[in-house]
């Protein structure tokens, strides 16, 4: 147990952080049918902004300011890069997303000079704590609860408010929703605002854990969060959250598999930890082949 526990804990924590990013992917996909490749980079930009803002401002100003700026960036990206392509083929809007991702990464590389930046310590969650035999950061314990609270709030928003109803309608049938007088652009903007906000919260948790922010540090978490969204059934928020926890945990289990097997008396020294990223994609391919709509995805009938 003493060997398994640290890996399990960090798996749950990373899973929670992926979940916050994955919600942004799954909501945007549900409404626009767009893989928003720039979402992982919005997450990274939130981290970079926090580094620079906290250098000159106290935390109680810099953190809310970072959240607001990230939301504005998410909103602006949608307006500038996706809205003009609303009627274009789906591939061009996805390519536009790749272009935005490229732009954000290069901008961050320019501003940071390509060097890793030290993430500021956030009082309250950066400290260490002992759980039984394992030592971990407080953020590891805070993450799952915060994620569950945020997801609960989001589900309430979607099920019990007018804008939430509009979102559900748009994701069900884009054209009909428009005919029923729903302001599509407002709904899409709200989706991006919520997604960017959650990604910004996720970035605080993630970078408090890993502390180094580079211009590429959004790419892998972004990709994994998207995989989590597909895994759970894209378009479904509970699916994305559960998928993210599964991905986070299995990634960390693979990291620690040799140590765990060593405890059980099986000595393997073959560097299985190399596959901690690959296992995510292996899971993705298995689920796509076995159940293409994901764990909680709705069955879609192919329209002829």
């Amino acid at each position: 147990m003493s060997v398994v526990l640290p890996y399990l804990l960090s798996g749950i924590s990373v899973g929670g952080q992926y979940a916050l990013i994955a919600i942004g992917y799954t909501m945007v996909y549900g409404i626009l049918r767009l893989i928003n490749f720039a979402h992982g980079d919005v997450f990274m930009v939130a981290g970079v902004m926090m580094v620079y803002l906290s250098a000159s401002l106290p935390l109680y100003i810099s953190m809310p300011l970072m959240l607001i700026l990230t939301v504005i960036i998410g909103f602006a990206i949608e307006r500038a890069a996706y809205k003009p392509l609303r009627s274009a083929p789906r591939m061009s809007i996805m390519i536009s997303a790749i272009g935005v991702s490229y732009l954000l990464q290069n901008l961050a590389a320019y501003i940071t000079g390509g060097l890793a930046q030290q993430y500021p310590t956030v009082p309250g969650i950066s400290g260490s704590v002992n759980i039984g035999p394992a030592t971990t950061k407080v953020v590891t314990l805070v993450t799952p609860f915060l994620v569950i609270a945020l997801v609960f709030a989001l589900v309430m928003l979607i099920n019990h408010t007018k804008i939430g109803m509009a979102m559900r309608a748009v994701s069900k049938d884009y054209d009909t929703a428009q005919l029923m007088g729903i302001r599509i652009n407002a709904v899409i903007s709200t989706t991006f605002v919520i997604g960017s906000f959650l990604a910004a919260v996720g970035s605080v948790l993630y970078f408090t854990n890993y502390t180094a922010v580079t211009y590429t540090s959004g790419a892998m978490p972004g990709l994994k969060a998207f995989v989590a969204a597909v895994f759970g059934g894209i378009g479904s928020i509970p699916g994305a959250v559960i998928g993210a926890f599964i991905i986070g945990i299995s990634e960390n289990i693979v990291k620690g598999l040799e140590a765990m097997l060593g405890m059980a008396g099986i000595n393997l020294n073959i560097g299985l930890a190399t596959f901690s990223d690959a296992v995510t994609f292996a899971l993705l391919i298995i689920i796509l082949v076995v159940k293409p709509t994901g764990l909680f995805g709705e069955k879609a009938t192919e329209k002829v």
Binding site: A282, I285, L288
Partner: peptide, 10 residues
């Protein structure tokens, strides 16, 4: 797209 991307990473 995402499955082929995943294979490249594997």
């Amino acid at each position: 797209a995402i499955a082929t991307l995943g294979f490249a990473e594997i």
